[in-house]
Design a protein around this nucleic acid. Structure first.
Lengths: 232, 232
DNA sequence: GTAATAGTGTCTCTAAGACAATATAGG
DNA sequence: CCTATATTGTCTTAGAGACACTATTAC
């Protein structure tokens, strides 16, 4: 085989999003090796042996967060193959994988990455992440915003039981808009398979207690949750 | 670097869709080399030197169709990295790129691929394509169907000038449904930036001549063109 | 005239959005 | 009682869909 078909190395980079303290957060690690040593970066790693790239992503997810990767649905964001995105040779090309996580108890129970921590997305977008991870993060957040519109993934940001108010806060946080409470409530409870009541209730601070729900069986959301028009 | 990070080779495979004789067609080539020699496959090729994968795709598009790749908008479908998808070693991992083309004059004016030809998608889905190209094609067609819904790419299936009827046939062909003519007409002409009239007309077979339009400036379509509900 | 296709008008119905009103808790 | 949050009700309006109707050509 000719040298013209340069061999490359592939990595899977993870964009693990969650909501903490009312803000969208992403899991970042501090790089311990060159290049970009000490910079914040998305967790990720090299494709190994005979695994598909999806398994690479699952493996890294488990290593970085200590969570069972099978509980998450990973989604490809896209491939990043600019020749200068990584100075190493042979070239390093990556694929972004989006994961949506509920609010996790400790900062991160992960083993491998002692330096892993949650960072608000607005803050991460301001910081200069390693490689082209800033761009990858932005693309993943865009994807997440679209997913909220047409699928039921919003429940993945919540725990096993949640209130309609919790779910509304997910939309408001990820989209950065305020939604009408009564209309949101009706829309969500009317959509088939989005949420189903558990029968339980949770007290609200100084108000009527909210009914608890769990995620329903549907993955597609129809009619979609319309994002309010942005009048530019 | 340890052997654990096996080097891989990357290819870009193209799913070039067009409409011919009222049917959705895809450009396929007959493989001239092993593996899968003689089988139908998507056009594509290896990443070369220091180019990004997008340029690989553009290059192959130009080589296979003779068309200027800059006239097309290529979209990543996704990465296919199953270890057994290609028997060659080192592993070959590919990324699908969707291209939407107007009805081209000759079968294919391409230079390199003498065996390139348009194949109806329904026929290609039945035939056993090389590698996992059947799956890639199916994913790309799904993506195209979604794009019609939320973007203005339908005009890319048409030439520089087209009638509303032409555009309606694009939707009907790709979605495989019949659409209401009056409602479609109003919807398209009312949407901002979707189409703009050229002032010209084109005679219809035994009917009132149709006004000609060209693609408008918008890329997003809002409100989206709703695909009729499928009652499974 | 008829046939065929292009385009307009109008009605119904679903669903989004605004917002009033009611329900249920803690103080 | 008041306050805060959850939930239901009601009205308005945008837009999808059905379909009658008009317009413009070829024959």
């Amino acid at each position: 085989m000719g040298r013209i078909h340069e061999a490359v190395r592939l990595t899977a980079d993870l964009i693990i999003l969650t909501i903490r303290d009312g803000a969208l957060n992403v899991l970042l690690v501090e790089r311990e090796n060159e290049p970009h040593r000490g910079r914040l970066a998305l967790p990720g790693g090299f494709l190994r042996g005979d695994e598909p790239l999806e398994r690479t992503a699952e493996r890294e997810l488990a290593e970085e967060t200590g969570l069972d990767a099978s509980a998450f649905r990973l989604r490809q964001v896209r491939v990043y193959s600019e020749p200068d995105r990584d100075p190493r040779r042979p070239r390093v090309i990556t694929c972004g994988f989006l994961a949506i996580a509920p609010n996790l108890p400790s900062p991160v129970a992960g083993s491998d990455a002692r330096s892993a921590r949650w960072v608000p997305v607005v803050e991460a977008a301001g910081a200069a992440l390693a490689f082209d991870h800033g761009r990858i993060l932005a693309d993943a957040v865009d994807l997440a915003r679209d997913l909220l519109q047409f699928s039921t993934v919003a429940t993945a940001f919540c725990g096993p039981e949640f209130t309609i108010g919790d779910l509304r806060e997910v939309y408001e946080t990820v989209w950065g808009v305020a939604l009408d409470r009564p209309n949101f409530h009706r829309k969500v409870t009317d959509a088939l398979g989005f949420v189903e009541p558990t029968g339980g209730k949770r007290p609200s601070p100084g108000g009527r207690p909210a009914a608890l729900y769990r995620a329903g069986g549907a993955t597609e959301l129809s009619p979609p949750m319309m994002r309010p028009r942005v009048d530019a």
